[in-house]
Computed example of a mutant assay.
Amino acid sequence: MMIATESQLDDEKVKEALRLVIDPELGYNIVDLGLIYAVLVNDGGVVNIVMTTTTRGCPATNYLKEGARDAAWSVPGVEFVDVTLTYEPPWSPQKMSATAKQHLGIADSGEW
């Protein structure tokens, strides 16, 4: 078992960088909005990101994909970034963090 050190690249470091990407329509970061489905850090600094948008045909799709790619590239140790867009499962407000819901004024009652 490897012991994590500050210099090791991991998915949490990439997720922190992805929090700098703000959805232009909702004004909040793509991680807490629940748009990032997976961050996989592989050997050699290869990062795979699986993400979605709030709707199919979202006008900000390319902006968000490029933002995710560029944010991941900014993390030390990243050598290659692949961003995959998916709509399965479809995004819903339930995927947002409690802080994102609070920011957007959405009651976290669990009823949608």
Rank of each mutant, 00 (worst) to 15 (best):
Q8S: 13
L9F: 04
D11I: 02
K13A: 11
V14Q: 02
V14I: 13
E16K: 13
A17F: 07
R19P: 06
V21T: 13
I22F: 12
I22R: 10
P24Q: 08
E25S: 07
V31R: 06
D32Y: 03
L33C: 14
Y37Q: 09
A38D: 15
V39R: 00
V39G: 06
L40G: 07
L40H: 08
N42W: 08
N42Y: 04
D43N: 09
G44P: 05
G44L: 00
V46H: 11
V47C: 07
N48R: 02
N48T: 06
N48K: 13
M51V: 14
T52A: 13
T53D: 05
T54H: 01
R56M: 15
P59S: 14
A60T: 04
T61G: 06
T61N: 02
T61S: 06
N62L: 10
N62R: 11
A68K: 08
R69I: 07
R69K: 15
A72R: 04
W73I: 10
S74Y: 02
P76G: 04
V78Y: 01
V78T: 09
E79L: 09
F80T: 13
F80W: 01
L85K: 12
Y87R: 13
Y87E: 10
E88V: 10
W91L: 00
S92W: 00
S92F: 13
Q94C: 09
Q94R: 12
K95A: 09
S97I: 11
S97Y: 12
T99I: 10
T99C: 01
A100H: 04
K101L: 10
H103Q: 12
A107I: 10
D108Y: 02
G110D: 11
